[in-house]
Computed example of a mutant assay.
Amino acid sequence: MIFIRYENWKGYLKYFPLTSLFLIANVVMFIVLTVNGGSTNNMVLLKFGALTNHELFAHEWWRYITSMFLHAGFGHLLFNSFALIVFAPPMERLLGSVRYGVLYLGGGVLGNILAVAWYNSVGSITISVGASGAIYAVYGAFLYVALFQRTMMDEASRKTMYTLLLFGIIFSFAMSGINWMAHLGGLLGGFFIYGLLIRLWKPRSLKR
């Protein structure tokens, strides 16, 4: 089962350095938001890089990246941190840190781009933060493995991934205030980015 973590904290930092860096960045930025007015304050979020489709910020392309490291409330941070800690490490091990970084950031950015396009199409203003799009990109990559590289993933892990995706999709649409398009865009982005990456670089084996 690839999603069970066996490492102590030193081993985790050693084997999954980029995932660890993403986690640390999320926590640090949450502290920064908290001491500067609160992580649920929209003005604070915009000040530190939240994504929005408001015309005043339309030229600030960097928000597509910075918003991935901001979280609105401790529960939001905790939920995404848990997903990163448990589910992302096997993908970093499979692709290596550099390629995994391309997947994570590329999928997150694509999810944000599609989310902005969606809100623009319906004429609604949005302020969006969170690592969910990037995390769903990792899920999308695992979905590719589960469907097309079945020998690289054990059956228990495959069933866990399908269940996780099912509940994730239901949760994305059932809960209010969830940027479901960022989730869906990240999932699709991760699926196709992974497919491209494995054609450029041969991945390692996931089986323990």
Rank of each mutant, 00 (worst) to 15 (best):
residue 84 L to H: 06
residue 84 L to T: 06
residue 84 L to A: 13
residue 84 L to Y: 01
residue 85 I to A: 05
residue 85 I to Q: 01
residue 85 I to K: 06
residue 86 V to N: 01
residue 87 F to A: 13
residue 87 F to K: 05
residue 88 A to W: 02
residue 88 A to M: 04
residue 88 A to E: 05
residue 88 A to P: 09
residue 88 A to I: 03
residue 89 P to D: 00
residue 89 P to V: 00
residue 89 P to C: 01
residue 89 P to N: 00
residue 90 P to L: 01
residue 91 M to D: 14
residue 91 M to V: 14
residue 91 M to F: 11
residue 91 M to Y: 15
residue 92 E to R: 07
residue 92 E to I: 04
residue 92 E to V: 09
residue 93 R to T: 03
residue 93 R to Y: 08
residue 93 R to A: 03
residue 93 R to G: 14
residue 93 R to C: 06
residue 94 L to V: 10
residue 95 L to V: 06
residue 96 G to W: 12
residue 96 G to D: 04
residue 97 S to H: 14
residue 97 S to K: 07
residue 97 S to N: 05
residue 97 S to P: 13
residue 97 S to G: 13
residue 98 V to D: 11
residue 98 V to L: 12
residue 99 R to I: 14
residue 99 R to M: 15
residue 99 R to E: 10
residue 100 Y to W: 11
residue 100 Y to L: 11
residue 100 Y to D: 03
residue 100 Y to E: 06
residue 101 G to E: 05
residue 101 G to C: 14
residue 101 G to T: 05
residue 101 G to L: 08
residue 101 G to H: 13
residue 101 G to M: 13
residue 101 G to F: 13
residue 102 V to E: 15
residue 102 V to I: 15
residue 103 L to R: 07
residue 103 L to D: 10
residue 103 L to S: 03
residue 103 L to Y: 06
residue 104 Y to S: 15
residue 104 Y to C: 04
residue 105 L to M: 14
residue 105 L to C: 12
residue 105 L to N: 10
residue 105 L to H: 09
residue 106 G to F: 12
residue 107 G to D: 11
residue 107 G to Y: 03
residue 107 G to R: 11
residue 108 G to M: 03
residue 109 V to M: 10
residue 109 V to P: 06
residue 109 V to S: 10
residue 109 V to D: 08
residue 110 L to P: 04
residue 110 L to A: 09
residue 110 L to V: 15
residue 111 G to M: 05
residue 111 G to K: 12
residue 111 G to C: 10
residue 112 N to V: 01
residue 113 I to L: 12
residue 113 I to N: 12
residue 114 L to V: 03
residue 114 L to T: 11
residue 114 L to A: 04
residue 114 L to G: 02
residue 114 L to M: 09
residue 115 A to N: 03
residue 115 A to K: 02
residue 116 V to H: 00
residue 116 V to W: 00
residue 116 V to G: 01
residue 116 V to A: 00
residue 116 V to N: 03
residue 117 A to N: 10
residue 118 W to G: 03
residue 119 Y to L: 01
residue 119 Y to D: 00
